[in-house]
């Protein structure tokens, strides 16, 4: 793994820090410094709540190199409550059925290890089903 590349992404991976456009108020993730809506400069940091809904999902029965030992696992496109879509793994999936539209929330988890290559362990966001409150 390329350690500096992952280090540069720490705010995004650990805290979902994106941007907000100072001109049209659109919220942006991943950060790109240019607003996808109005095309103007957008460098103001904005931390996302980590709450969203599943737009689509799939269960991978086999993983690419570095992820294989985790298979099977769920991955999803998640529409964040603030607007943008994000691609991530789902985690802590128990017996409940995963559905399009299910509410999910961000948690921090181990994404992968690179074995004996460079020794780095990659952490980042995954999303889990929102825990339902049980009435007393």
């Amino acid at each position: 793994m390329e350690n500096p590349r992952h280090w540069r992404l720490k705010k995004q991976r650990y805290a979902l820090v994106g941007e907000i456009c100072p001109h049209c108020a659109v919220k942006i993730f991943p950060p790109r410094d240019v607003c996808p809506e109005c095309g103007l400069e957008a460098k103001t940091s904005y931390q996302f709540s980590g709450k969203g809904k599943i737009y689509s999902y799939t269960k991978m029965t086999d993983g690419p190199a570095g992820f294989r030992q985790n298979a099977p696992y769920f991955v999803a496109l998640i529409q964040l409550n603030e607007g943008p879509m994000i691609t991530a793994q789902l985690t802590d999936v128990g017996d409940e059925e995963i559905k399009i539209g299910s509410p999910v929330e961000m948690v921090t988890r181990k994404l992968r290890e690179d074995g004996d290559q460079h020794g780095a362990i990659l952490y980042g966001y995954k999303f889990r089903p929102v825990l339902q409150e049980v009435s007393a």
């Binding site: 992952h6 995004q12 991943p30 689509s56 999902y57 991978m60 690419p64 691609t87 994404l111």
Partner: peptide
């Protein structure tokens, strides 16, 4: 940074489109 390193294969990306 934002698709591959989340553990998605190319098949998975297309599966997301197909399910939706």
């Amino acid at each position: 940074d934002y698709e591959r390193d989340m553990g998605l294969s190319f098949v998975a990306l297309n599966a997301l489109l197909m399910r939706r």
